[in-house]
Design a protein around this nucleic acid. Structure first.
Lengths: 89, 89, 89, 89
DNA sequence: GGCTTGGAATAGCTTC
DNA sequence: GAAGCTATTCCAAGCC
């Protein structure tokens, strides 16, 4: 036997550490949820004022991606669609 | 004509309002991302200390669901699996 | 007691039915997986021939949505972005 | 100029190839959708006969994972939850 | 081999 | 309350 100390010295600290991780995760998830609720409210308010939330979401995405990449993707899409126009549909 | 005011009095305010929504969404998304990064770090730290993050995630989920519902689901799963044991595999 | 028949007359048939559902689901999921693998191969081949798979995926989505709705969405996005141009960034 | 041939000799074949990929993808996606609908119907039928579809889905997942891994995960979850019992809640 | 993108599934919200 | 849509989460695979 390599140790004479009771399990409590190993297991319990590990359990406490595990509990700590779980509570920390639960705390940050509570924050995330609060902000997600805020966002939902913003969209709800925008919708109430006649804006299309889908389009707003898309704009937010495009801005996050960056103007340059967004334009590249738009351009490539246009090329592909132009080429297809004479063939499909 | 019901209005003599130029469009600017309508369109521009709408544009400003749209811009405001977008910025508010971007602000809360920045907060969400910060907290999500925190959570990722907690899991990373837990993993570094030998914990299984998948299991921790599952526990977090089960706690969020509540003890009662969790136990109900466990019980039902056990029933179904017991019944299947004599038939499948 | 409302019934003198052994449980087997109720439980076992239910268990058999449950097993049947599970196997039917597993069968269709095998089919789905096979086709999903096919799709992956097609994209892989397209990529090997120099096509951008992200753009192809987007085109597939747009075609699924339908030309009309796609154009509506594009148009609304353009309006929103034009209005924002003078305000944000 | 390295080539005297008209663009058509390059662009159009590429366009045709692109169109071919798109149609092949659309074909396999139609198959996938058909099978996904089948699966939905199976679950719907199971539900109509009193089964809990969430539990059936879980069983299908567990069987896909394999008995061994499933039992390992269950065991680890039990260990973690036992250790937490004395600390959290 | 890890990390980041992409796909699938689940769950929640919205709409009818 | 059912059904579609959206968003998030989870998992796998491909890239670095």
């Amino acid at each position: 036997m390599t140790k004479s100390k009771p399990d409590g010295d190993n297991v319990v600290p590990a359990a406490r550490q595990l509990a700590s991780y779980i509570q920390r995760v639960e705390n940050v998830e509570a924050e995330i949820k609060a902000h997600a609720d805020d966002r939902k409210e913003i969209y709800s308010e925008a919708k109430g004022n006649g804006f299309d939330t889908r389009t707003i979401r898309e704009i937010v995405k495009r801005r996050k991606l960056g103007r340059e990449k967004t334009e590249e993707r738009d351009a490539l899409l246009a090329v592909y669609e132009t080429n297809l126009d004479s063939i499909l549909d």
